[in-house]
Amino acid sequence: MAERALARLTRLLGIVSYLETHGEAPFDELAARFGTTPTQIEADVWLLFTTGKPGGMPDDYVDFDGDALDEGIARLRDGQGLTQVRFSAREAVALLGALSSLEASGAAPPAAASALTKLKTAVGDVAPVEVMGESRADPQVVAVVREGAESGRAVALEYVDAQDHRTERLIEPHRLVTIDGVGYVECWCHRAGDYRTLRLDRIMSAALTEDVVTHAPADHTGFSLAPRYEATVEAARAARWALESMPGASISETDQGILTTFPVADADWVAGRLLAIGPHLHSVAPAALADAVARRAADVLAAQDG
């Protein structure tokens, strides 16, 4: 598929702008800088050659040193005043939004916060996006886990899972990830004897050990729980947003509301999520999942009413 004109235009302006400051650069250096191939950079330079002021006199065109081009070097002679332009509103929201999301997850390194400050200044007031709130992850815990991942050393954790089981684990951290604004660490967990993705805000404490990481990072990311069966849930339309967020959910509209199916790997976890839309639930199948919901609902009521 042909590259979009705007993406190319942005790079063309970038090449001229960079060369205005640095004078010259080899094609392959520009290619690495702008995430493309040297061949593409060469085609970009030739396109720039043909652009210029109205009138079309020889001095009116963007110009490069021809001899340098033969050696694969872009040496700018005349940029005709072209320069990189400021961020558009959409670009600013796309980049600042993403960076803020990384930062708010608690998983990003300190450089995310300083980059955000610099970019916000550069963007000025064109970006109609505000960031509020902050991560519950403990920054000291995250710093230890990150140091483990960067230096290749194991970390000893105190972890509380979604079912409130408190465990001590030795993990080999490979990478911090954010998924929809929540921070996790991908690791090899010695306790489980398998790869795990642990939520950073559920790590109560972390200590760096002297043990060296021995397991290679998993070649897949995200969650590795195997689904055990397919759930079918009917609910009022008001519960749509909650059901949409179930991994692998497919949703259809019915006369009474919505019908959702999704794979269930952990019935207790799903049951907990379904309680949160309790007043909107119409039916839950299969019986194994309905039982899990009933059991947990009864436990909640028993606790609440003493």
Binding site: R4, L6, A7, T10, R11, L13, G14, I15, S17, Y18, R33, F34, G35, Q84, V85, R86, F87, S88, R90, E91, A92, V93, A94, L95, A98, L119
Partner: peptide
């Protein structure tokens, strides 16, 4: 696409 365009600007 918007984000990658912004990244091109950052790189330049």
């Amino acid at each position: 696409e918007d984000a990658r365009q912004a990244l091109t600007k950052v790189a330049s």
